[in-house]
Amino acid sequence: MSKFKKKRGKASPAISTASLPDIIFMLLFFFMVVTVLRDSEKKVDVVTPSASELTKLEKKSLVHYMYVGRPVEKFRATYGTKPRLQLGDKFAEFTEIPLFIEQHKSKLREADQPKIITSLRIDGDVTMGIVTDIKTALRKANQLKVNYSAKPMVR
């Protein structure tokens, strides 16, 4: 009997929690790496022009992005050098814009759906032809709140 008791007492020390911080640090690093990766997957070169009358976009969940610019070096062989539109992480045609907007809307509550903003990140050297086409597509899709993304400029 005494033997039994002794054994039990020795086997019950608390499980070491020393590795818990390591696990959580791993999570931390994972999140940090993932956030950077998702944003940097750009297929077109965009250098936004600068402007002074800027509005800050407060609610990130209401904003979706469209990129316009020349394809980056490694895609030039397949897509050429003409300015292209990028939706999400792939090249897209103007006809895909309404679907892209609907997809964004479907993620939001109904009350928030009319508040969505399209942020256009357009390269400064692109000509207005493609921009006009996108604007027309947006108007046809009844998405009228548009933000021309720009760098701050001091007057």
Binding site: T48, L54, L57, L120, L144, K145, V146, Y148, A150, P152
Partner: peptide
Amino acid sequence: DKGVLVKL
């Protein structure tokens, strides 16, 4: 993100 906000 900052930019020039317009209403089409």
